[in-house]
Design a protein around this nucleic acid. Structure first.
Length: 888
RNA sequence: GGGCGGAUAGCUCAAUUGGGAGAGCGCAGCCCUUACAAGGCUGAGGUCACAGGUUCGAUCCCUGUUCCGCCUACCA
């Protein structure tokens, strides 16, 4: 029928590219394939243009694709909206590094040329991650791809900035901010990573002016002492009471500084006296402000991380760390160094380049987020946005309730330029969406634009509506906002998710998405975070290359249990590739056996196994749909695995081989094989799009549409409870014989005779009607079936007791009595133990009185069963023993 | 310092509202049975981290302890 039949096994490379191109060509990723469906939208968390696909992206993209393919198949007008983020600092860094190689820098190039250069870079390399997402099978609508610096999105940014400014929610202020001396820009609080590091606590003597004695202070940053403007003590601290108001000689300078009181000083820490450097420490800035008059601020470290002129001629121009050494040496030689202690404390680093942050005082733009946060908290409280797993809402609330103003200006060139201009003549500040040609106040020409750009996250915060066309009232915006699900990792919950909720509520009047699904972080096999520096990074594309995108995707989905990190293991991918191979071969078998038999319907199905598998399929489909509904990706994939392999392949296909020999049933069975495969492929498709398309195209009944992508996702399939019930004894009988064979080591080729004593007439009837199946699957020659036929138990027989039946296998000649006695003995031991436990429970009056009736009844039934089983086993053992004696 | 999560088979992990724990891989035995050795059949393997408490009954609920992650915080 197809070339598939000739291919021995599944080879992803030959099919993946082909089908992706096919989907693109047919425009199947567009929501318009279901024009009348209910809208469902996912906006991608835009990866950095500089980025290349890592495990986190792979997981993130897989889950989004599973959702969007599933919804699309359900008939939704599903849109997965892709795009990238201009990643201001990161991208600028990349291009600056290139320039450095060319022995030049951005300042020599000039702003305009530099920006051109970055665009050029973006054009050449920026699309890499998009390409990689395609390799993963992402069914995003690329015709709608967006970039945060697109015209439309820039328009959104300006609109938002101006509106917030006009409402007083954006303001400019000069105060301490986190400064990265390497990136030469301000950072928001979130962009600072704190890490515990071992440092040194240096104790320095500050002599009292014009008198004897000194105050001892401790610091981890001795170089900042050059900018000290006070020493603070707790007003309640008896040791220092008298000193408050006195002056100290600040060593290494010719300045005098006062001793001041501030309640924030911990008496227990260090010496209880703290040096105060308002220009370089957030706490100290606060202390300085609380004094009246406020303390002076002396900046001794510059934007480049080097000491300024104010540090004094000896230190000016030195790097802050060189200066630290020199200051310590100088203090030592002056005898003002008391001691140095090892000290572990947490230090802030730039999240982009890991350089130690320096708090510096510079004018920056801020968003006053508290009013925005209030509504965003409400939205989650009321469930208008659901965070899944729910546990993360606690973190969300904690952060939002203590939120601080957001520093949004960055001193770099690559990004959205702040829409603020300053008149060179009158100093008027102009905040506008459109570049002003003249000063509206004095008419002065060409006001100068603020040199800074906005934090990249400022534009990302608008992503769910700016990508849909806002501020234009586009049809997309109308249909797809609010979007359905946001899929992301927790590490950008604050950076991005919270801010989108705030901005969405503010500018769209509604939440940006209904559900936020927070997935795990992908770690290495030892549970370590993957990082380049640790060298434990697993490249997703290498995995795709080795095992195929389908196996990789399925692995990620199967790993994606809620609330737990993923320890990635290549072994698992291998396992799931075997799974796909199983599917491949099952399909091959079915196509070989069904030929042109596409026609037919469920009405032609009369045999029990077919009705059974259809019912099982129905149940699996329901569970899979429910799991996806609740974002339990691992449950959905495990269920698929279980059904396809252990129910469909292990049982149904094996049973069908016998069924097909019966001409009266063959047609129905062929239909059922094809139909079930068709359904399984559809159920699997969101997880493994490529191989399912390949198989569906070659095997599924013709004329059912152009692609599995747009086929209906299985749902509400018929159930046959009686078929499931009747299959029980058949499966049990086969298993019972197999168990005996396996345990006694009867060779697979050797046929056995089987006697089945069923406990009910119905079971016996069913079994009688399925003798050929049992013969084949159990490797039996002859079968005797009946009820109450214990007396037919042969002398030399192996016995197996199941729930509704018992099985005897005469093994004269085959049987080693010792082996069988051993097996029965072990079985008896297990049964006895279980029975004891059960009986003890039932003898406990309190249990019988207090436990629910159903539980007690269940326990009683179990007891009876176990008693039967035990008696049976004992009989068998006794008989074998007597035989042993006879023989012996 | 505060908060969150985890500890279950040799390994990686499940268990939807408390009634004696499952899967995959690995392991052992037997098989090239004509879709599949990337396979089939069978089997072994667990004091559900530790100690208390609630309950007729606890892997599950409560308290405490230990060990590991992570988030967060202005102790110089």
């Amino acid at each position: 029928m197809s070339d598939q039949a000739e291919r021995k096994s599944y080879d992803p490379k030959t099919i993946e590219r082909k089908w992706y191109d096919f989907w693109l060509e047919k425009s199947l990723f567009k929501p318009e394939v279901n024009p009348s469906g209910r809208p469902y939208c996912i906006v991608i968390p835009p990866p950095n243009v500089t980025g290349s696909l890592h495990m986190g992206h792979a997981l993130n993209a897989t889950l989004q694709d599973v959702l969007v393919r599933w919804r699309r198949m359900q008939g939704a007008r599903a849109l997965w909206l892709p795009g990238t983020d201009h990643a201001g600092i990161a991208t600028q860094n990349v291009v600056e590094r290139e320039l450095a190689k060319e022995k030049t820098d951005r300042h020599q190039l000039g702003r305009e040329e530099f920006i051109k250069r970055v665009w050029k870079w973006k054009g050449e390399y920026g699309g890499r991650i998009i390409h990689q997402l395609k390799v993963m099978g992402a069914s995003a609508d690329w015709s709608r791809e967006r970039f945060t610096l697109d015209d439309g999105l820039s328009e959104a940014v300006r609109t938002v900035f101006v509106k917030l400014y006009e409402e007083g929610l954006i303001y400019r202020s000069a105060r301490l901010i986190n400064w990265c001396p390497r990136c030469r820009t301000a950072l928001s609080d979130l962009e600072v990573e704190h890490e515990e590091e071992e440092g040194i606590l240096t104790y320095i003597k500050y002599p009292l002016s014009g008198g004897k004695g000194h105050v001892l202070v401790a610091t981890t940053r001795p170089e900042t002492m050059l900018g000290d403007t006070a020493v603070a003590v707790n007003p309640a601290d008896g040791r220092y009471n008298e000193l408050i108001g006195r002056k100290l000689d600040l060593p290494l300078t010719c300045r005098q500084i006062p001793v001041v009181a501030d309640p924030a000083v911990e008496m227990e820490f260090g010496t209880g006296a703290v040096k105060v450097t308002p220009a370089h420490d957030f706490n100290d800035e606060e202390i300085g402000k609380r004094q009246s008059p406020p303390l002076e601020s002396v900046s001794v470290i510059g934007a480049d991380g080097k000491m300024t002129a104010q540090a004094g001629p000896r230190y000016a121009g030195l790097d802050r760390y060189e200066c630290r050494k020199l200051v310590v040496e100088d203090l030592k030689s002056l005898g003002l160094l008391e001691k140095e202690e090892k000290y572990t404390h947490s230090i802030g680093h730039c999240y982009r380049c890991k350089t130690v942050i320096e708090p510096l005082s510079t004018p920056q733009w801020y968003v006053r987020v508290e009013p925005l946060a209030r509504e965003a908290i409400e939205a989650v409280r009321q469930g208008r946005v659901r965070i899944i797993p729910e546990g993360w809402s606690n973190s969300y609330f904690a952060w939002m309730e203590n939120i601080k103003d957001w520093c949004i200006s960055r001193q770099i060139w690559w990004g959205h330029r702040i829409p603020v201009w300053y008149c060179r003549q009158c100093g008027q500040v102009i905040v506008a969406r459109v570049t002003p040609q003249a000063c509206p106040r004095c008419g002065g020409a060409a006001p100068e634009q603020d040199p800074d750009v906005l934090d990249t996250w400022f534009s990302s915060a608008l992503w769910p509506f700016s990508t849909l066309g806002w501020p234009e009232e586009t049809p997309d915006l109308k249909s797809f906002y609010p979007t359905g699900t946001l899929v992301t990792a927790f590490d950008i919950l604050f950076f991005w998710v919270a801010r989108m909720i705030m901005m969405g509520l503010k500018f769209m009047g509604d939440v940006p998405f209904r559900d936020v699904y927070i997935h795990a972080l992908v770690r290495d096999q030892e549970g370590q975070k993957m990082s380049k520096s640790k060298g434990n990074v697993v490249d997703p594309l290498t995995i795709v290359d080795k095992y195929g995108a389908d196996a990789f995707r399925f692995t990620l989905a199967a790993f994606a249990a809620q609330g737990r990190d993923i320890k990635f293991s290549e072994e698992r991918v291998k396992g799931y590739r075997h799974f796909i191979n199983k599917l491949w071969n099952a399909s091959k078998f079915i196509s070989m056996n069904t030929q042109e038999e596409a026609a037919g319907s469920i009405d032609g199905v009369s045999d029990l196994p077919s009705r059974w598998i259809l019912s099982r399929l129905s149940q699996a489909a329901e569970e899979i749909n429910l799991a996806l509904e609740e974002y339990r990706f691992n449950d959905a994939s495990n269920r698929l695995y279980q059904f396809l392999w252990h129910e469909f392949c292990d049982w149904y296909i094996e049973l069908a081989k016998t069924g097909l020999e019966d001409a009266g049933q063959a047609k129905g069975i062929r239909w059922c094989l094809l139909h079930t495969l068709d359904m399984v492929l559809k159920l699997l498709h969101p997880f493994m799009p490529f191989v399912t398309e390949e198989l569906w195209q070659t095997i599924a009944p013709a004329g059912k549409g152009q692609s599995i992508m747009t086929a209906a996702y299985p749902k509400d399939l018929p159930r046959f409870p009686e078929a499931e019930e009747q299959m029980g004894p058949v499966i049990d009988a086969i298993s019972a014989v197999r168990n005996i064979r396996g345990e006694l080591g009867i060779r697979p080729g050797a046929k056995v005779n089987v006697i089945v004593n069923a406990y009910s007439g119905a079971a016996a009837d069913t079994l009688k009607r399925h003798v050929p199946y049992i013969k084949r699957l159990a490797g039996a020659d002859s079968i005797i079936i009946g009820t109450g036929i214990e007396d037919q138990k042969p002398k030399k027989a192996a016995v197996n007791v199941m729930q509704g039946l018992e099985v005897y296998v005469p093994v004269a000649g085959l049987l080693d009595i010792e082996t069988e006695l051993d097996r029965l003995g072990r079985e008896l031991g297990r049964t006895g133990k279980e029975l004891d436990f059960c009986l003890r429970k039932l003898m406990d009056e309190e249990f019988v009185n207090k436990a629910p009736e159903a539980v007690v009844a269940k326990e009683k039934a179990k007891c009876r069963e176990l008693e039967d089983k035990k008696r049976n086993l004992e009989e068998s053992i006794n008989r074998l023993k007597s035989m042993e004696v006879e023989n012996g």
